[in-house]
Design a binder for these strands. Structure first.
Lengths: 197, 197
DNA sequence: GTCTATATCAAGATAGAC
DNA sequence: GTCTATCTTGATATAGAC
């Protein structure tokens, strides 16, 4: 009987361990104990520790995509509603999820290849932002603000409190709106004025 | 004889190793061999591997400050010249330095405490950006764009080529100018040529 | 096919010799 | 201050039990 659950259970256990003590301190013994299997059993499903972390990262990104889809349904019509959904979904991640993301990001230290999915994700996002409007620097600016916030928060480097953060999120959404409006106007230049708050 | 050089030599060796193969794959054996001492000798100066990495990180940040100071001397007068110097210095780091920074950042996976210096650095930067002007979201926006670019590049997540990147840097400097101009509520002293996209 | 038990090997850390 | 010898832990590899 190929128990589909076993693999899933091990992934969940790994996720729990990583969230609790970080990917760097996660050991195979720890995960297998949490999952209720032997180390060998774990290694049967994930031949190396890296494979396990890789699976966690893919899982994390997939979950994020689900969250974005959920937000997308709530966004009003608009060319860039997908981007806004991205921002809101990112803003809504809870502390536990963020901790998991940070741990996984840092786990890539052992193999830059592990960042490949993330790299693809960024490529996709930047292309998406770039594809709309005429001022691609402005677009990149928005992309960088969003993803900069995202990553700085993951790493715990963002010195904002909740109130400040909420204001910043609103500001970002406004940026998208303005950019969307500018892009829609055929003759409109994208410099300065419309960005003044 | 307390050889001041010994510690320094070991630090240099560690830096070389990290730059070459990454902090995760750096072993004490490797470093001690490169430095020409035994593992025990190395561990006398740096009681743990983490202590060694910590020293490398502090060294890295100190070097970055030196680079900023150098750029500061080249910047024309202006309220936010320090910020522009920061941007330019960040943009100018060579590949080797970037690789080192990335490795050190990722090394923090083993202990979030290692990120403490970086955290302090960001706090300082954001406060500096925040202190000038009235629109603090706008200021934060600039800060996030700069540091977002910085970190995404360190992690190799930035999908830009050199030309695109240069344009983005110029755009960022222009953002600072615009913000400075808005804050001063005067004509805005933009330094012409270097800011054209 | 799925797992347990056990073996191996690398690398961080410690103790004490010099 | 620095080295050698040794301990320990954790990641893999292997041998088979069910």
């Amino acid at each position: 009987m190929p128990r589909r659950n076993a693999r899933e259970r091990m992934l969940q256990a790994a996720q729990a361990v990583v969230t609790r003590i970080g990917a760097a301190h996660m050991t195979l013994d720890h995960v297998s104990a949490t999952a209720g299997v032997s180390k060998g059993g774990l290694l049967y499903h994930f031949p190396t520790k890296e494979a396990l972390i890789q699976a966690l990262i893919e899982n994390y990104i997939a979950n994020f995509h689900v969250a974005i889809s959920r937000e997308l349904a709530r966004q009003p019509k608009g060319t860039l509603r997908e981007i806004k959904a991205h921002i809101v979904a990112g803003a809504k991640r809870d502390a536990k999820t963020r901790r998991l993301g940070a741990a996984l990001l840092l786990a890539a230290a052992h193999d830059p290849k592990l960042l490949a999915p993330a790299r693809m994700e960024f490529k996709r996002v930047f292309r998406r932002y770039d594809g709309v409007g005429k001022n691609s620097e402005r677009a990149a600016e928005i992309a960088l603000v969003c993803d900069g916030l995202h990553i700085l928060e993951l790493l715990g480097l963002m010195p904002y409190d909740n109130r400040r953060r909420a204001k910043m999120i609103r500001h970002m959404l406004r940026l998208v709106d303005i950019y969307e409006g500018d892009s829609a106007k055929s003759g409109g230049t994208c410099d300065g004025p419309s960005l003044k708050a």
